[in-house]
Design a protein around this nucleic acid. Structure first.
Lengths: 204, 204
DNA sequence: AGCATAAGCGGACTTTACCCCGCTTAGCGA
DNA sequence: TCGCTAAGCGGGGTAAAGTCCGCTTATGCT
């Protein structure tokens, strides 16, 4: 009878039909992506293919970008796990500088492998995904916190390094020809100059 | 009778009616921007206000973002002139490192002043404007070329510094509350950490 | 001045993301 | 087992960017 002490503490689990539809939609999106490419995955087409109403698609994923982000979540999780508890230098144990370099290289490789999805997941209504979409910023902030960088510059430098890493990637991945190349090259120059940047920012 | 030696060397100047319409459209856009804010400046509304057809709007500016970029062009030109031939340290004459710092500070100030237009000029169909929209990248490349940065890292570092400068700005300017604040603060922390970054990248 | 022609114009049309809201039904408690 | 109710569903509706194409007209040539 009483209201629960923590209101909405258990916000009613996802209904079975909702879960089923989510899986169906995700699978349909994956298939359409593989068959016809990202730009053919329109909300109408996806809804029809999955055999649900358009409203359902939006209810589940919020926006077009949401679908691709959901598709990306799996591998993103695995990537994060490598960073948080994998072997050094990507995972804990190495010096901050080495981890920064390793993170950049890993992130570049990761985004290149998933470039199709990454491109599609760019929300056309939001200028830069950097804020929430990845762990890069908080991770960098943490790593810089373990160096001799003055505290008052921690946030600024972390933000700038994040931009320096992801900006060029976004730019590169935006180029049209990349979309059609299964395994793009030019991954190494990016990684090398990332390393150069980090070594200059954190000397010694 | 003969075809000109340089074909399209003089590609027929803009017709008078076209020029007139461009000015009318620009003025209408400016007015609508001031009166109702950027998101109310739709292509239909703009065309109607200017008394032209929608096709004309697109012919002149290519896209919605094109209008705001055109509006920005004036002041952008003045900014570029300061950089190319104004007094040091922004203009020529100072050391590359000082010019980098000065450029960053000036660019931050500039983008803050014009934040409304800058926000509106972000093309929602293109992830990052960095490529063509500003002189930042080539300018950085030139400045780095005058330092002891190894030649093979010039392009990479220039691109990363450009991202490091403009990325956080875009991110910051994207925040909702900024859009409503005529004179936002938080300009200084950004500028200070930019200086910190440059000093670390170019020691000595 | 008269003409030929390509630039310019307009607005209906298409496409697509996203919203709305009345209907349906899963899941829970009695 | 039977209702109750809120979550879920569907698909028609809206808004806005961008395209198309037949008509108009400025402009340079003669």
């Amino acid at each position: 009878m009483n209201a629960p002490l923590v209101p909405f503490g258990k916000p009613r689990p996802e209904r079975a039909d909702a879960a089923r539809n989510r899986l169906i939609l995700l699978e349909a999106a994956r298939a359409m992506l593989a068959e016809h490419g990202a730009e053919k995955v329109t909300m109408d087409a996806l809804a029809e293919r999955a055999g649900v109403g358009k409203g359902t698609v939006f209810r589940r994923f919020g926006s077009r970008a949401g679908i691709f982000n959901a598709l990306l979540d799996d591998s993103e999780g695995r990537f994060q796990e490598q960073v948080l508890s994998g072997p050094p230098p990507l995972g804990p144990g190495a010096a901050p500088k080495q981890r920064l370099i390793a993170y950049g290289r890993a992130r570049i490789a990761y985004l290149f492998v998933h470039h199709t999805l990454v491109r599609a997941a760019l929300d056309r209504n939001r200028p830069a995904p950097m804020g929430e979409v990845s762990m890069t910023l908080p991770h960098f902030r943490m790593l810089l916190g373990r160096t001799d960088v003055p505290r008052r510059h921690l946030d600024g430098l972390a933000l700038q390094l994040t931009s320096a890493l992801e900006g060029p990637l976004m730019l590169y991945l935006s180029r049209e020809e990349i979309a059609r190349t299964p395994e793009p090259d030019a991954e190494d120059p990016l990684a090398d100059s990332w390393q150069e940047l980090v070594e200059r920012v954190l000397p010694g």
